[in-house]
Amino acid sequence: MAIEIRAGAKKPYPMFVNEAKQGLKDKGNVELHGLGESITNVVRAGDMLTSQGYAELVSFHTLTLNENRDGQTRSKAKVIISLKKASTFDKAFQDFESKRFGK
């Protein structure tokens, strides 16, 4: 089962990258969820994880959700990015840790 990470628009995307790396390390699968303005953070995080060798893209889904507020229906876009642990994860993680701690 994948770990679900719900991204927010007010937090920087590297925070979700770090959370996803930990989820990939622990469980092997993560889902990044972004609603409305947070979609940008989810796409950036997913792109960074795949381009740096931490994850492989499993699926990319888009949805439109309708919500009723004060008698008005509003639509919001939602993105779900499913990732699995890449075969290069351990090397990428080890390289990052050694640079981080200067070893």
Score class of each variant (00 low, 15 high):
36 G>E: 06
38 S>Q: 05
13 Y>W: 15
42 V>G: 04
31 E>G: 01
49 L>S: 09
45 A>V: 11
46 G>Q: 05
24 L>F: 09
44 R>L: 15
32 L>K: 12
45 A>I: 09
43 V>A: 13
48 M>D: 15
32 L>E: 11
52 Q>F: 12
29 N>V: 09
31 E>M: 09
17 V>I: 14
40 T>W: 06
16 F>R: 02
17 V>Y: 06
52 Q>L: 15
55 A>W: 01
20 A>I: 09
55 A>V: 01
30 V>I: 14
48 M>E: 15
32 L>M: 14
19 E>C: 03
34 G>S: 05
32 L>C: 13
45 A>F: 09
29 N>S: 08
51 S>N: 13
45 A>D: 10
13 Y>L: 02
42 V>Q: 03
26 D>W: 01
55 A>C: 03
14 P>T: 11
37 E>I: 00
29 N>E: 14
48 M>H: 15
24 L>N: 08
55 A>L: 03
31 E>L: 09
28 G>P: 05
32 L>S: 11
24 L>D: 08
38 S>R: 03
26 D>C: 01
43 V>P: 00
49 L>R: 07
21 K>Y: 02
37 E>G: 12
26 D>K: 11
21 K>C: 06
31 E>F: 01
13 Y>N: 00
55 A>H: 02
18 N>D: 15
21 K>P: 00
47 D>C: 10
16 F>M: 07
23 G>E: 03
19 E>R: 13
54 Y>K: 04
39 I>F: 01
29 N>H: 14
38 S>G: 07
27 K>V: 12
44 R>M: 13
25 K>C: 00
20 A>R: 05
57 L>G: 10
41 N>E: 08
23 G>M: 03
44 R>I: 07
21 K>S: 00
36 G>W: 00
45 A>T: 11
19 E>N: 02
20 A>V: 08
25 K>W: 07
20 A>C: 10
27 K>M: 11
48 M>W: 15
40 T>R: 13
46 G>R: 01
28 G>I: 05
43 V>H: 04
51 S>W: 02
16 F>W: 08
53 G>H: 07
45 A>N: 10
54 Y>W: 10
48 M>Q: 12
46 G>M: 02
34 G>K: 02
56 E>T: 10
51 S>I: 04
14 P>C: 10
27 K>T: 10
41 N>W: 03
56 E>K: 15
32 L>W: 12
42 V>R: 04
37 E>L: 11
41 N>L: 06
44 R>D: 08
17 V>G: 07
39 I>G: 00
51 S>G: 04
15 M>P: 00
45 A>R: 08
13 Y>D: 00
19 E>I: 14
32 L>T: 12
27 K>E: 12
37 E>N: 13
15 M>Q: 14
37 E>P: 05
46 G>I: 02
22 Q>M: 12
17 V>C: 09
54 Y>D: 03
19 E>Y: 08
54 Y>Q: 04
38 S>E: 06
44 R>W: 06
43 V>C: 08
